[in-house]
Design a protein around this nucleic acid. Structure first.
Lengths: 345, 345
DNA sequence: CTGTTAGCGCCTTCAA
DNA sequence: TTGAAGGCGCTAACAG
């Protein structure tokens, strides 16, 4: 086991520990000869620096804490992947905390007390571990103001935000607007939308994009085309049935997630309407399964990797006291598949 | 910022730093009065211990390194969740390393040089961070012998193994045997199997389970019923077409993953055969989408959470020098849905 | 029951 | 270009 330290190699190379430290970190010029000698001994003894000691001294760990509300929720792994991507390039390590919210308190976000305890202890542990900063990954975008106190350590939120901290979000409004534009390009004018829960920010923003498109393209506006879903398949199913029953049913449906789009497909199938011949569908999230359904569904891909990457980049700036220039919001991208038909009229 | 340390609170409470340490860790009896006083000051100053310093002294970090070959691959998040579950209960923290193999070198596992470099540097960084042990999560089960050297630190593999280290695997043979039994219970006797790549251990083990069932239940054995797939949808599709063309087509197909099962569904649909009326299908993995297909497919759920939990448990034993009693292998569980029909006759 | 103190392994100022 | 030495914040003998 690696009991050898800087002083062992110093002794064996006939230099001071300071010199070893210098060659290790390139902190100061060292004559080529001594450097070689030191390096040789390091190699010979298979020396591995002890980052713990280093961190204690430098008062920096080059480690950031990631608090994931639930790593098993679909957005989280890709975000973490983005965080890693940036981390790898800048020698930043990740201490992962998984709140396991889905399993521990389910979707009942009103149970704030329990939640707050979990979150507080997670932050507290991370702080004790002396992380240089924290990234918080929520399971759905909402206002987390006042729930977390990092005692001055920088924090960046994604899939969530507070009124005071930095947060990385993608552009929801643009996304639904773009989906609408695509549908309109394909000749659709009677377009319905099935939203997620209305207490959700993305739902509201995407609805804005919808309204914007309706207005700009001067589509016939019909309040009946706007259905409030709850993100689950059943609501996609039920609301599609309603839509299909309308005297003037839509020719296209924009579902705010792929799960509800599954319900749309099912309702259409049962009602004998062909997708995309009779009805077009666009989903959201580009979940893996959206490519496995039949028809394969066209969907908006959320830039999760980029969000993780940018969150880390932003945090890194904060950690160094630099300001982070928020640049552009990450943007969703339409994945064209087979669920949208050309409407010739 | 938390500049206050043990000595600040010692001073303010008129005790020695040792006493503070003792009340903090409960390492020694402290008179109630002093304890109260110390606790009060800790509270008052909002003191947070510095685990880095503590680790340096104790030569233990209570942190384990998790090396994931790719966190975005479906098995990984659930395994990590299991690791967290155990970790939460035992105050063990997770330093996560993501090799990002899928994105960096794809599925070309023959590119060992590149892989070895990534793995070696991951281990090396973790070792420098003084983790107390390592859990390795592969993207698919294979022999990793000789690829990783942890210099004596304990390591546990899952979704992968070596000839010398501990590994947590689920029971593949039992899984396919159980799936077969279920099919047989439902009256099927002509059962085909679509395997994954044959250089994969799970493929071979599951095939064993298949053979075992064929033998024990004295099913008519037909080599034509055994098809070699490659885990991808297209192979499920193509091989099903072949199966359907047989003079005596099977009444049920066991696909070694849900992705290939998607191909089975598609082929069946195109060939006008109804599932489950004319053909039954069982998948593997219980991927989320298996519940979204139509019909919803019956599949074998892999105990990922349990594997992560057990891997951590095993590692924890190793870390303490205790032997780990491997007990039972985690077992797969059949998720009954709608893709298997009762064959009367 | 409590205090004193020597490090853990490394970095970095100060001096040479 | 190099060394000596004082901590970083905490734990755990050892001593009282």
């Amino acid at each position: 086991m690696s009991n050898i330290g800087i002083k062992d190699i110093a002794a064996r190379a006939n230099v001071s520990t300071a010199t070893v430290s210098y060659v290790l970190n390139g902190t100061r010029n060292v004559s080529p000869k001594t450097r070689e000698r030191v390096l040789a001994v390091i190699e010979e003894l298979n020396y591995k620096p002890n980052d713990i000691a280093k961190s204690l001294k430098r008062r920096r760990t080059d480690t950031i804490g990631v608090i994931a509300e639930d790593v098993t929720v679909f957005n989280t792994p890709e975000i973490i992947d983005g965080i890693n991507d940036y981390g790898d390039r800048h020698d930043l390590h990740i201490l992962l905390t998984n709140l396991r919210l889905d399993k521990r308190i389910g979707r009942d976000f009103t149970n704030l007390d329990k939640y707050r305890r979990y979150a507080a202890s997670a932050v507290s542990e991370l702080l004790s571990k002396q992380v240089d900063g924290i990234i918080y990954i929520g399971v759905h975008t909402r206002d987390l103001t006042g729930l977390i106190d990092t005692e001055g350590k920088p924090i960046v939120y994604t899939y969530g935000y507070t009124q005071v901290d930095m947060a990385i979000q993608y552009n929801d409004e643009q996304a639904s607007y773009e989906a609408m534009s695509y549908l309109i390009e394909k000749g659709h004018r009677k377009i319905a939308i099935i939203s997620g829960l209305m207490d959700s920010i993305p739902s509201r923003l995407r609805l804005n994009g919808y309204y914007k498109a309706v207005t700009e393209y001067e589509l016939p506006f019909d309040p009946q085309y706007i259905k409030m879903g709850d993100w689950e398949r059943e609501s996609g199913y039920g609301l599609t049935k309603e839509l299909l029953q309308l005297p003037e049913p839509p020719s296209a449906i924009l579902a705010m997630n792929d799960v509800m789009a599954v319900g749309v497909l099912q309702a259409a199938k049962e009602s004998g309407v062909q997708i995309p011949a009779d009805l077009s569908v666009i989903g959201f999230d580009n979940r893996e399964f959206s490519d496995y359904l039949s028809p394969r569904i066209t969907t908006m891909d959320i830039p999760l990797h980029e969000m993780g990457y940018k969150a880390m980049e932003a945090l890194h700036c904060l950690m160094q006291g630099k300001p982070y220039k928020p640049a552009e919001m990450p943007v969703c991208r339409l994945i064209e598949r087979d669920s949208v038909g050309l409407l010739r009229n």
